[in-house]
């Protein structure tokens, strides 16, 4: 069994050797991720795991991939997307320009879902979707816009439940068990690495989505991140979190009003 002290050592290595700071991640989950990686890669001892990590920059990739959870899907929580379509997007329609930030976008399913929603509202042409993640590998996948065909049945059901009225399969072309989403959807996307632990605000947005990322942070890092978002949201802009995440424990809460049952807040001051 891996002990707390071992975790501290690995986190220290990651920071000192590579500058990645995971110290304020939620410990219980992080411990599981590290144990899992240690077991999967069959290290005879924890010391050897650490040695490999410190001496082999190639292995770092694997560790970052192993520590972060990148599970995602298109139109995840369809009712959330329904609320976006009916309550959020229409209030942005009059703007000359719409800026959206997907923080922790993983392999891009969320960004492509948003592009579809905007396209159907006839707003994609004047939107910009910034999609960031700390993990460069998931961003590479997101850039390609290629997803496994087997997922499409589920995604299509999600799409319909979210209020989508078109034929979902019209948005992609299938080939060899993969699908590639329409180039026109990706035209307004900008992918870039951005670490919520250490990087700063880089623009002002009308809507920030950060879903299922904060659950991996402890309260202190959540507070830092939420303040970063607060700095990056204009008045009357929106912040959308994952279905089990909340602003309730944050100091920025007072400036925001929750819109409906979905986890969407509007900045009111």
């Amino acid at each position: 069994m891996i002990e707390e002290a071992d975790i501290d050592l690995v986190l220290n290595d990651l920071f000192e050797v590579y500058g990645y700071d995971f110290t304020n991640y939620a410990r219980a989950s992080l411990k599981r991720r590290i144990s899992r990686l240690f077991l999967l890669d069959k290290f005879p001892s924890f010391a050897e795991f650490r040695y490999r990590l410190k001496s082999d920059p190639g292995y770092l990739k694997r560790v970052i991939e192993g520590l972060t959870v990148t599970v995602t899907e298109m139109f995840r929580d369809p009712l959330f997307y329904k609320a976006l379509r009916t309550e959020i997007i229409p209030t942005l329609a009059a703007k000359p320009f719409i800026r959206i930030w997907h923080a922790g976008c993983s392999t891009g399913e969320e960004v492509f879902s948003m592009a579809i929603v905007l396209k159907e509202a006839n707003l994609l042409h004047k939107s910009l979707l910034y999609a960031t993640d700390l993990n460069p590998q998931v961003l590479e996948k997101a850039r390609r816009g290629v997803f496994p065909l087997v997922q499409m049945k589920q995604y299509s059901e999600n799409y319909i439940e979210s209020g989508g009225k078109n034929d979902f399969s019209a948005y992609y072309t299938a080939q060899y068990g993969q699908v590639k989403f329409d180039e026109s959807l990706a035209e307004k996307m900008i992918f870039s690495t951005h670490n919520l632990v250490s990087d700063r605000s880089f623009n002002e947005f009308d809507l920030i989505l950060c879903r299922n990322v904060l659950i991996y942070f402890d309260k202190q890092l959540q507070e830092r991140t939420l303040n970063l978002f607060d700095e990056s949201i204009g008045t009357l802009g929106y912040l959308a979190l994952g279905s089990k995440e909340t602003l309730n424990f944050s100091s920025i809460k007072a400036k925001y009003r929750q819109l409906n049952k979905e986890k969407i807040w509007r900045k009111i001051s």
Binding site: R32, V69, K219, K244
Partner: peptide
């Protein structure tokens, strides 16, 4: 525990959720 998340407890007795495998 909510559907679709693993339920974890932190040392300082707060819950954490986790949507890993």
């Amino acid at each position: 525990a909510p559907a679709d998340y693993h339920l974890l407890i932190e040392k300082d007795e707060v819950f954490s959720l986790d949507d890993s495998e």
